[in-house]
Write a protein that binds this DNA or RNA. Structure first.
Lengths: 333, 333
DNA sequence: TTGTACGCGTTATCAT
DNA sequence: ATGATAACGCGTACAA
């Protein structure tokens, strides 16, 4: 027979709690808590009884209650624009490696460009759900300025304009300049650029690097959306230009893959008739036909650096990119 | 001057809580709670004062405390083997669409084959961190049998052997048989199969479907690891066989892409000299050269069905696949 | 319609 | 070395 309860005890009855362990082991909850926390002031014999009870019941501490009491969750949330883009995958791998080593676990939230959803996920930081936020979105959700200051937020791969946010990036302008220079040295004089979406920070940086090498005589970049379809469409537009380019520098690999397809459909051979240069070095870049020459961003290291900076509160270093030579580029004929 | 406190108030002081709203609005916390919950028994005028205070302070309810009190978090956790594989991305998109519509948010955990990590994430279910679990891993973490029974766990894309778990899948054996039949009708008589890893459930199902059509006379399948590299290696081994196949059915698109590359390197033309058939229809499948003929799994619908079944507690329907004809297959010459 | 009191499961302080 | 107790922030039965 149970006593009447004032407050409704919501659903999920029966889950074994610390109190149960205490009863079984014949000690108080405080002792159980201490034993589980590894306090040295718990007798070996008492500890043994507690551990036996834990094993017997399969007890695990309630992270929600613990989080409420401790005001921290040991969880990091990674916010990304779309999980469908494989570029982010390897960054997250790096994040997870470093986080796990530091005793944190990682959750991923995909926002799909939905500001509402982005804000909702970011709110987890306010409400104690997560201890830190890693932004791969290139945008800072509403009402996070104060947390950013407290070092609970860090941006990766893309700088966020107008914010003083610690950021893990390569020098995108230099990387774009290096790519364009590579094509120039191959002997190309008409090097076009398929850029990201207009207004995007990365787009601007890569356009700047390209423009620095090709000069003002070159035509304007063609803007895309970082997708394969948009790359193909952009390539088609370039091929219709009066003075067709002999080389194209693309702002990411997916657009380069789209460009490759459009070039093939137009009957051009790559690299004989047209050189194509990518950016990122996603896994698929090595498997296109021909394999893609591209700029590699050290994505795993992005993840490591992000966690290191987040947990230590130190500003992250700027990381180095690599030019990966494959077969989609050659001297013009 | 603050009163002395018995218990250490851990870190994060200052975050505005419901009590603050109550003070500003001149009401009690219970009224605030009711107002925020949309209870009809709160006067319009009182509600207005509360809402003003909320806007003024930017208050949001503490989800951790709320979760502890309510014993639910309105969060779903998706467990996947590796986030680097784009196949899972679109499933998650579907999960997110359906979950958001139902007022749930979605978190993703990538296990990277680490059983430890898998169990740690799954524990969130025990400890109230999440209300439901979606398994894309083809494996059930330890100590979840009871929850599975309570309908808090569902498997997607891959059945989990030995468990009575609601599962969202296509009929993989039928799909493999359909693919092989398609090649057979094209006129191929020597159809090889590049399979997934040995011991995998999906592998077995797809091998069975293929075998049913080719009969016992065909050689054994070549096993791979669902990666592009392993697909290339498998193709190389097939090309070394005395009676070289004229068509290859691959257990996923990534291995097909690897096979395509190996075929090209060997100087074969696809589809003239060799037909290649994929599985999944990932985004890249339409952008290979030639574009890949493949089986499409309705991944977005996988996500929708998973959430529907999870929240309603009803068994999910088996979903339909589609054969997508592209240019990597043709009649043998 | 609003306020009071209690409990969700845990940890830290204090006393023994 | 161990136990009693308060508090983390919130929701609800009950009293007013």
């Amino acid at each position: 027979m149970t006593l009447p309860r004032k407050t409704e005890p919501p659903a999920a009855a029966g889950r074994t709690k610390m109190e149960d362990i205490a009863r079984i082991a014949g000690v108080s909850v405080s002792t159980v808590s201490r034993a589980l926390a590894g306090s040295s002031k718990v007798t070996g014999e008492t500890r043994a009884r507690i551990e036996a009870a834990v094993r017997q019941t399969g007890y695990v501490v309630n992270q929600v209650a613990q989080g409420l009491r401790l005001q921290r969750s040991r969880q990091i949330l990674v916010l990304l624009p779309t999980i469908a883009n494989p570029f982010f995958g390897e960054i997250i791998l790096g994040v997870e490696e470093a986080a796990q080593a530091a005793g944190y676990s990682v959750l991923v939230g995909s926002t799909e460009g939905d500001l509402e959803r982005e804000a909702a996920l970011a709110r987890q930081l306010h409400t104690g759900g997560v201890d830190g936020l890693i932004l791969l979105t290139g945008r800072i959700p509403d009402g996070l300025a104060d947390h950013a200051a407290r070092g609970q937020v860090i941006a990766v791969s893309e700088t966020i304009p107008g914010q003083h946010l610690p950021t893990v990036v390569i020098d995108n302008e230099e990387a774009a300049a290096a790519a364009t220079t590579y094509l120039r040295r191959l002997g190309h004089h008409n090097i076009a650029h398929i850029a990201g979406p207009e207004g995007n920070v990365l787009t601007a940086q890569r356009v700047r690097g390209w423009r620095r090498i090709v000069g003002d005589a070159a035509g304007p970049p063609v803007f895309g959306a970082f997708t394969m379809d948009s790359g193909a469409a952009a390539m088609t537009r370039l091929l219709a230009r009066p003075n067709r380019p002999t080389a194209v520098f693309c702002a990411n690999d997916e657009m380069a893959i789209g460009a490759l397809k459009a070039a093939h459909l137009a009957g051009l051979r790559v690299p004989e008739d047209l050189s194509i240069f990518g950016f990122d070095d996603i896994t698929f870049a090595a498997f296109t036909d021909p394999p893609l020459t591209t700029i590699r961003q050290p994505r795993r290291e992005f993840g490591h650096a992000a966690i290191a900076a987040l947990l230590a509160g130190t500003p992250p270093p700027r990381l180095a990119f690599t030019l990966v030579e494959r077969a989609s580029t050659a001297a013009p004929r």
